[in-house]
Design a protein around this nucleic acid. Sequence first.
DNA 1: TCTGTATTTTACCAAAAAGATAATTAACTA
DNA 2: TAGTTAATTATCTTTTTGGTAAAATACAGA
Lengths: 111, 111
Amino acid sequence: MQSDALSATFSALADPTRRAMLARLAEGEATVNELAEPFEMTLPAISKHLKVLEKAGLVSRGKKAQFRPCRLQAGPLKDIAGWVEAYRHYWDESFDRLDSYLEEIQKEQQR
Amino acid sequence: MQSDALSATFSALADPTRRAMLARLAEGEATVNELAEPFEMTLPAISKHLKVLEKAGLVSRGKKAQFRPCRLQAGPLKDIAGWVEAYRHYWDESFDRLDSYLEEIQKEQQR
DNA sequence: TCTGTATTTTACCAAAAAGATAATTAACTA
DNA sequence: TAGTTAATTATCTTTTTGGTAAAATACAGA
């Protein structure tokens, strides 16, 4: 049971179906059936995925007659972006060079 | 079975132990024992987590005597950053996709 | 070659996730 | 009220995940 929010978000995003659902919701509200339409999965399966996204705070649901319109809630994605940004200079070439430069200096100062 | 790289990366990051291991590796190479030290888990458990990270391409391992020094490989994090950036304007008030689109056009017209 | 240290592998277990089908609830419509 | 549509719940199966304990492997040094 991953209790922390970041883990729940990463976990929710670790499924292509769920990411596709978010992509669809980025275009606007959608009902469960609309969300299910592109997939071969059964409706209950989609409903489960939706619940995972909802639990991670990535989706909220309204109520219009017998429909449950879903909306994207991007808040948790901000946390993901924040987390990953801390690592940016590890993949960015120019920062890499700076790193090894600083390492070089440190080594030299140790002598 | 998540075959795509993005899912494997998200999945690998969906565990606080593994994220802590990456944070440790961001400070530099470390052996398996060094990585295991802060945790209460047994060594085989750490070894398993390491394998998950390795499979996701987030960690590479060398070979020095009986040690297997681990290094951070941030490449996959770049993909994560890329994916999440597409949603930035859903959480960022000031960011407007239309704005950046217009900027893009202006730059192109200047050429 | 024996010994200690580092690490991995194997065998095993429990809990969680992902999917299916069938039944159920809820709300509208004729 | 009966029928239809939307969505959920219940139940079951299979697979994956995360962990332990014990055995195996790899290497360095005496």
